Amino acid sequence: MNACMNNKIKEILLHKISASGKYITPIPGLTLLCGKKGIKSLSANNILSIVLVIQGNGFAICKDKSIICHENDYFFAIPQAAGKHCCITTCKSKYFLALSLKISRHVLSLLGTGSSHVCLQHSGTSDDAYEEDIKIDLFNCFQRLIMLMDKPEQIDVRAPIIICEIHYLVLISRKWREREPSALDDLSDAHTC
């Protein structure tokens, strides 16, 4: 993982966040999650989303399953039963910073979810190297997204393009292929991003 890229995202986020909690951004579907030292639990949205962990470690409870959240990694928050949220228990020794982006069933369908034309792996690369490339691309996309927060006049045009790129990376990732099969069935809305 490119440490410079992650440090840039941390720097941008730390300037925008003043306290622990969940921050709604002007970018559709994008939420910032921050757990300062000593915070035990954060609540994420009750929607299918990709969560990119920028700093810290923890455990996420999604669909009554525990997922380890590693720094510089991502996971999928799967919707809970009605009234429950995906809860992230953060490591007490370090700030926890993460970005959560709603995954749209409509956008996935436009990109060809379930279709044979979606390439699942580059030829000539190992699955681990391929997954690391996807992770780096995801960090690049999220960095471009949060940089738009300082250019609000560009959000309406540029954010949907970047969000669709993130959806494509989700579709071709190993973690998405290995997700719980009912994840898409649990989506209650089909709005675009």
Rank of each mutant, 00 (worst) to 15 (best):
H85T: 01
D150V: 10
C86V: 15
Q154I: 09
L111E: 09
L111K: 07
A159I: 06
L145F: 08
L99A: 12
Q80C: 05
H70Q: 11
L99N: 04
C86W: 00
Y130I: 04
P79D: 08
Q154P: 01
M147T: 11
C164S: 15
L99D: 02
A129T: 15
F139N: 00
S104D: 08
N72H: 14
N140H: 10
E71N: 10
S93N: 13
H85N: 14
A82Q: 10
R158G: 00
Y95K: 08
L120A: 09
L120N: 11
E71P: 03
K94G: 01
L148C: 06
H70L: 14
Q121S: 11
A81F: 01
R105T: 06
E71Y: 04
M149P: 05
I136C: 06
E165W: 07
R105W: 11
R144I: 04
K135T: 13
L101G: 01
F96L: 06
Y74M: 06
C87D: 04
I134Q: 04
G83S: 04
A81L: 04
A77H: 01
L148W: 05
V107L: 10
K84W: 04
C164N: 14
D137E: 11
E132L: 14
K94Q: 15
R105F: 12
T90M: 10
L120G: 10
A98G: 09
K135G: 07
L108D: 02
C86Y: 00
L145D: 04
S116H: 13
T89A: 07
V107W: 00
A82E: 15
N72F: 14
E131T: 12
R158C: 09
K92Y: 10
P160H: 11
A129G: 08
S104K: 02
K84D: 05
F96W: 03
D133F: 06
D133M: 12
A77F: 01
Y95I: 08
L110C: 14
I155P: 02
C86A: 05
D133W: 06
K84A: 03
E165R: 09
D150I: 08
I162T: 13
H117R: 11
I163H: 01
I103V: 15
A159V: 10
I146W: 02
I134P: 02
H122I: 06
K84Q: 11
C87S: 08
N72S: 15
G112K: 13
N140P: 00
A77W: 00
Q80L: 01
